[in-house]
Amino acid sequence: MIGEVDVARQGDVAVVTLKREAKLNALSTQLESRLLDAVRSDAVKGSRAVVITGGDKVFSAGADTGELREMTPEAIAEYYRSSGAVYEAVAALPQPTVAAIAGYCLGGGFELALAADLRVADETAVFGLPEVGLGILPSSGGVTRLVRAVGPARTRDLVLRGRKMSTVEAHSWGLLTETVEAGEHLTTALNIAAELAGQPPMAVSIAKQVITAATDAPRETALLLEQLAYATLNRIG
């Protein structure tokens, strides 16, 4: 347990659970710091796959925006270098990551889920980025990842309108790997993570990096990355 975040191992899978249920797992700077500690913990470093969840009822209702409103521009810049770096730390993990989602997955919570490689949501999940309605905007990778995942038109629809979307709609947009019945999100995510953990770790890690780089790389660069990665893995194998 790291404060408001629990880290446990199930074999080769590390399970990171947000534990601020009374506040719907709102991502305060303290919770983000604890999550960053969890991501950097030995339990996660020694794993071969990672599941991130908010538990049975809610993933996260979003960031604690009141904290940031009190900050100066200099303090906000420091925030992105400290606890606010957790979203990119999750995205940069060498292991495959799976977000197990139920209930609210809003604002910073949605951005955290988008930082994972795969997302499993049960039928109770609700997604959205309400920041523009609060006079701000998603700033922890949400806009960038959404544009790459669903294109600018759909990103404008979701971000500018601040509307919520269901599990069914999120799946139809290609944002979810699997949808399941209520309460089955964590079990399904753990099964997927165990499957990923059984794959050759170097191949999984390098393939993950190539896919990320190929998302917005020129075609020739992406092809070269594939070929160099293959040559590297073939040599290791």
Rank of each mutant, 00 (worst) to 15 (best):
Ile2Ala: 09
Ala8Asn: 07
Gln10Asp: 15
Gly11Met: 04
Asp12Asn: 07
Leu18Gly: 07
Arg20Glu: 09
Ser28Tyr: 09
Leu31Val: 15
Leu31Tyr: 06
Asp37Cys: 06
Lys45His: 12
Gly46Ala: 08
Ser47Asp: 06
Ile52Pro: 02
Gly54Asp: 09
Gly55Met: 05
Gly55Trp: 03
Ala61Pro: 01
Thr65Gln: 02
Glu67Lys: 03
Glu67Pro: 03
Leu68Asn: 01
Arg69Val: 04
Glu70Gln: 14
Pro73Tyr: 09
Ala75Thr: 05
Ala75His: 12
Ile76Tyr: 14
Arg81Leu: 12
Ser82Asn: 14
Ser82Pro: 02
Gly84Thr: 11
Ala85Glu: 09
Ala85Asp: 14
Thr97Ile: 07
Ile101Lys: 02
Ile101Tyr: 02
Gly107Ser: 15
Leu114Met: 11
Leu114Trp: 01
Ala115Asn: 03
Ala116Tyr: 02
Arg119Phe: 00
Val120His: 00
Ala125Lys: 00
Val126His: 00
Pro130Asn: 04
Pro130Ala: 10
Val132Ala: 06
Gly133Cys: 00
Leu134Val: 01
Gly135Phe: 08
Ile136Cys: 07
Ser140Tyr: 01
Gly141Ile: 12
Val143Cys: 02
Leu146Asp: 08
Arg148Glu: 13
Ala149Ile: 06
Val150Gly: 11
Val150His: 07
Pro152Gly: 02
Pro152Asn: 06
Ala153Tyr: 08
Thr155Gln: 06
Asp157Pro: 00
Leu158Met: 13
Leu160Pro: 01
Lys164Val: 09
Met165Thr: 08
Ser166Asp: 06
Glu169Pro: 03
Glu169Gly: 02
His171Ala: 15
Trp173Asn: 09
Trp173Ala: 07
Gly174Gln: 03
Leu175Glu: 06
Gly183Ile: 08
Glu184Gln: 14
Thr188Phe: 06
Leu190Val: 11
Asn191His: 13
Ala193Trp: 12
Glu195Met: 14
Glu195Phe: 13
Gly198Met: 09
Pro200Asp: 14
Pro201Asp: 03
Ala203Asp: 10
Ala207Pro: 07
Gln209Leu: 10
Ala213Asp: 13
Thr215Pro: 00
Arg219Glu: 11
Glu220Cys: 02
Leu223Ile: 14
Gln227His: 12
Thr232Gln: 14
Leu233Asn: 11
Asn234Thr: 12
Asn234Leu: 13
Ile236Phe: 15
Gly237Tyr: 13
